[in-house]
Simulated scan of single mutants.
Amino acid sequence: MSDVWIYVEGGGGKDSKDHLRQAFGQFLSGPRVAAREQRIRWRIVLCGSREQTYRMFQHRLQTQPDPGPVFLLVDADRPVSGTPREHLSGGETRWDLSFAGDRQCHLMVQVMESWFLADQAALVAFYGREFAAAQLSNRANVEEIPKQQVYESLDRATRNTRKGKYDKADHAPQILKNLDPERVRARAPHCNRLFEDLLKAIA
């Protein structure tokens, strides 16, 4: 089988992208290890902006004669109704995804940090006892928490910690790599969908 390619939104400079790529690799270690056992190479590409992620995903699917399993993973940025492909083809995004299958398009709903709220134990472990977990929503489905509320609650919960307020560049990779995937999958349906489709692709 061809390599598995996952084009992910995020990262700025080379170091930032490297740190996030390693963190996503750790978070997705279940499918990654399953792929390795079948001698399938696993390629996570941190692409920077949302638009750049789309363009790189599009380029691989449209220019490679045998692109293999290829996936797109970007922030939803708003509530999701319908499939991820429908979500990204409509609203403000309006991407042409006619070249991609429905199960190749995936979303972090509503943003990557929503996954953090699904595993509060990982946040406490990272920030320490000063972390104010009571500031976070306990909603069973973290994807229902508005994007702005996710960021604001993280700011409030972390402002008195020794590491300081949540900093996406410095803190996100360290938190992501220590999340419990099963906890996140249980509270983020689109994250669960991602894992299922990755495992199907290498089955």
Rank of each mutant, 00 (worst) to 15 (best):
R187L: 03
Q26T: 00
C47K: 03
F126Q: 00
L97E: 05
N138P: 09
S98Y: 01
R78I: 08
D155K: 14
C47P: 08
Y127E: 04
P146L: 14
W95E: 10
P31Q: 06
V8K: 00
S89P: 09
Q64S: 01
R193Q: 03
F71C: 01
V124S: 14
V74R: 01
R41L: 13
W42K: 00
A203G: 02
D96T: 13
L61I: 10
I44L: 06
R162F: 15
R55F: 00
A132T: 03
A140Y: 07
R85T: 06
V33F: 09
F71Q: 02
Q148G: 13
D155F: 14
E152Y: 13
T158P: 06
F131T: 03
E144N: 04
G11K: 03
D77K: 11
G91N: 05
Q62C: 04
P31I: 04
L73V: 08
Y54P: 00
N178A: 03
L198Q: 04
A172C: 11
W115D: 06
S98M: 03
T161D: 12
S114C: 13
P69L: 01
Y151P: 05
P79D: 07
P67F: 08
L97W: 08
A201G: 12
L46Y: 04
E9V: 02
R32F: 00
K177S: 06
I202Y: 05
G11Q: 08
V142P: 05
E9N: 06
Y7F: 14
G13V: 12
R185N: 07
L46P: 02
P189C: 02
A23H: 01
V142T: 07
T53N: 10
Q149A: 15
R50W: 00
F24M: 00
D197E: 10
S81M: 11
A35T: 00
N178D: 02
K17G: 03
R162N: 09
A121F: 15
T83L: 04
K163S: 12
Y151K: 12
F131H: 01
T83Q: 01
S153Q: 13
A132L: 09
R21D: 04
K163H: 12
A121S: 15
W95Y: 15
P84F: 02
S16E: 11
A186K: 11
E37V: 11
E152W: 13
N178R: 08
G90W: 01
R193E: 02
V45W: 10
I145Q: 09
G68K: 09
Q110T: 12
M112P: 03
D77N: 10
R139E: 15
A133C: 08
